[in-house]
Design a protein around this nucleic acid. Structure first.
Length: 573
RNA sequence: CGGAGUGUGGCCUAGUUGGCUAAGGCGCAUGGUUUGGGACCAUGAGAUCCUGGGUUCAAGUCCCAGCACUCCGACCA
């Protein structure tokens, strides 16, 4: 490709608003340009790099036995109604109507479409299993786009869906996809951590995220020092050690408690440890039920765990007014005698302490020596605690909190969709049976951003060779004055560079040729560093004096002279 | 959706207590000097100062409303 033919340019200045390195560099080097918030143009270089990523993913998916298809972007809204996701989906569904009034959702994920496709065929157990995938533009009406390609409202996604007769067979594919993902990201120059995560609106029982550790990432996860456990903070489990179970249960008593609403003030007032206090948080779910979450004072409530435990789609904090109407008092809530007014959900950490203290459902009144079962009975009990840095994993290894970019995930869907959409195959006994399913996604645009976040220096991007838009950035340096001279010398430079450009192309080497007449040498070098192709090849009077070109690998300081006749071979080798 | 902020040629910015023809750099065009790290000189084009309303003799500047964007949070992958 000739650089003189690009209508796009690199830019020196970047707005202060652009914070993420990948955003800054992809913008500056002319890979992407924003249209509206979270919607990007991919420019000549950008689409080239993205296509490379797509190629790698496609190759590995094919090797893994998956089959590529494509679905329409507009999904009949009826399909989303079948699974009730018009209500439950986390991202706001964007819908459009055609002139006859038919309503469609702009696809944000495609489980319904794929299941609908599969059930159009009369599939028998003999056809199973299979895994179908696609690359398609996804639309998610995110509340807030950010960080360039890190979080967008429109993006290319590889999504795969597998169909199985039973769980055992599915598990094989889950493992297969997991290994495939490791290979894919490795080829893309990314080291990933696989963490347990919440299925969210996708449904199913479990899933794993592939995360690239990075400060700009939005996925918070915990990883144990022994490396055996990694989980998103939404689902991370940890060890809740027994505190004072050997204590005798004392008589509960109500005392005056002139204190503010904070936990710290409770500690100060009663001169008792934080872990002995009961933390009470009142929520309202999407069915307008009051949910009282109670937990040991040194832990925080994990709303995702809570939501999953009580099977709610949504939670919000109750207002002070609502708490009053329940006969309690914000800051002084207690699970004692609350069962009739709210669903009391207790974290199992409350089984690790005795003689706890906390509010008395009255202002400035506290209860001492509260004991579970004796003084209050939870309606639901389970793990609703948020893991934190420094806590111990269940096997006793220290947990470290980290942040990362979620580039892909794999989901167990089980019978979730096949049951809701009545999608069945005929089993060996000739009976209809629901599919056991999984799905597997990779955000291509975000992956591209993650690669840049991991591969850059002061001067610009350093693309891994697999996904560089071009392998070679060929640069011609010439003097106009000498070029004008009819004798040998600089005119020769352009001729030689043109020839070399053709030769490299004929050798199937992808080359970006900076043939611009007006750009200075410095400008060309700066652009080459910024764009970040793996090899920079310079043709100038100086190099031609030795019948050579100068080669420099991006990211290294060393330059090397290579005979111009040998350079094509050199680059292939 | 809550909080904060921003909106000025293609890009990055300046613009004072409201005051003359809206300033600079980058980029672009033309000519010239240059050519191994974003070089220099000259000339030139390019602005509904986000939109609408208001206050005022006078608004880029103050007020109101809207829109867009950014950041924090919430939400979400």
């Amino acid at each position: 490709m000739l650089q003189s033919k690009f209508f796009t340019k690199t830019t020196k200045t970047v707005s202060h608003d652009i914070k993420a390195v990948s955003h800054k560099l992809l913008y500056q080097a002319g890979f992407i340009r924003e249209s509206a918030a979270g919607r990007y143009y991919f420019l000549p270089l950008g689409i080239k790099a993205r296509d490379k990523i797509v190629d790698v993913i496609e190759q590995e998916m094919n090797k893994a036995g998956a089959i590529k298809i494509i679905t329409p972007v507009l999904h009949p809204i009826e399909l989303w109604k079948e699974t009730n996701r018009t209500n439950s989906v986390g991202f706001e569904l964007m819908t459009v109507k055609d002139r006859s009034g038919s309503e469609f959702a702009l696809g944000g994920t495609a489980e319904e479409m794929i299941v609908d496709l599969v059930r159009k065929f009369n599939v028998s157990y003999k056809d199973l299993p299979f895994n179908i995938y696609q690359f398609s533009q996804k639309f998610r009406d995110e509340l807030r786009a950010r960080g360039g390609l890190l979080r967008v409202r429109e993006f290319l996604m590889k999504d795969a869906y597998s169909f199985h007769a039973d769980e055992d067979d599915f598990k094989k594919e889950y493992k297969n996809m997991r290994n495939t993902y490791v290979k894919i990201f490795k080829r893309l120059g990314l080291e990933t951590v696989m963490v347990e995560a919440d299925n969210g609106y996708i449904g199913g029982d479990y899933c794993h995220e592939f995360v690239v550790e990075s400060e700009v990432g939005e996925s918070r996860f915990l990883i144990s020092e022994d490396g055996k456990y990694a989980a998103h903070e939404d689902v991370a489990k940890f060890k809740k050690e027994n505190k004072n179970l050997d204590e005798k249960e004392k008589k509960m008593q109500e005392v005056e408690a002139k204190r503010s609403n904070t936990m710290e003030d409770g500690v100060k007032l009663h001169k008792l440890p934080l872990w002995r206090q009961i933390k009470d948080v009142m929520f309202v779910d999407d069915k307008d039920r009051f949910i009282l979450a109670v937990i040991r004072g040194d832990f925080d409530v994990n709303e995702t765990k809570l939501k999953n435990l009580i099977k709610a789609n949504n939670l919000r904090h109750a207002t002070d007014k609502e708490i009053k109407e329940l006969g309690s008092e914000s800051g002084f809530i207690s699970p004692v005698n609350m069962n009739k007014k709210a669903i009391v959900v207790a974290d199992d950490s409350l089984r690790t302490i005795k003689n706890a203290y906390g509010g008395a459902n009255k202002k400035y009144r506290d209860l001492l020596n509260i004991n579970i079962d004796r003084d209050y009975k939870p309606n639901i009990e389970g793990d609703i605690a948020m893991a934190q840095d420094g806590f111990l994993s269940e096997s006793g290894s220290k947990l470290k909190e980290s942040k990362g970019i979620e580039v892909g995930n794999i989901f167990q869907l089980g019978l979730h969709y096949s049951e809701k959409m009545n999608a069945t195959f005929t089993n060996k006994n000739g009976k209809e049976q629901f599919y056991y399913m999984g799905c597997y996604g990779i955000g291509v645009d975000r992956t591209m951003a993650a690669i840049v976040e991991k591969h850059y220096d002061k001067a610009g991007i350093i693309w891994p060779e697999q996904i560089a838009p071009f392998k070679v950035h060929l640069i011609l340096i010439e003097s106009r004055k000498q070029k004008a001279a009819s004798s040998a010398g600089q005119a020769e430079s352009r001729k030689k560079a043109d020839e070399l450009y053709r030769e490299l192309q004929n050798s199937e080497i992808e080359v970006l040729y900076d043939d611009r007449e007006e750009a200075s040498a410095g400008e060309k070098f700066a652009d080459a560093d910024l764009i970040g192709c793996p090899f920079r090849v310079v043709v100038s009077k100086k190099t031609l004096a030795n019948d050579s070109v100068e080669v420099k690998k991006r990211g290294s300081e060393k330059c090397e002279l290579v005979k111009i006749d040998d350079i094509a071979k050199w680059l292939i080798g």
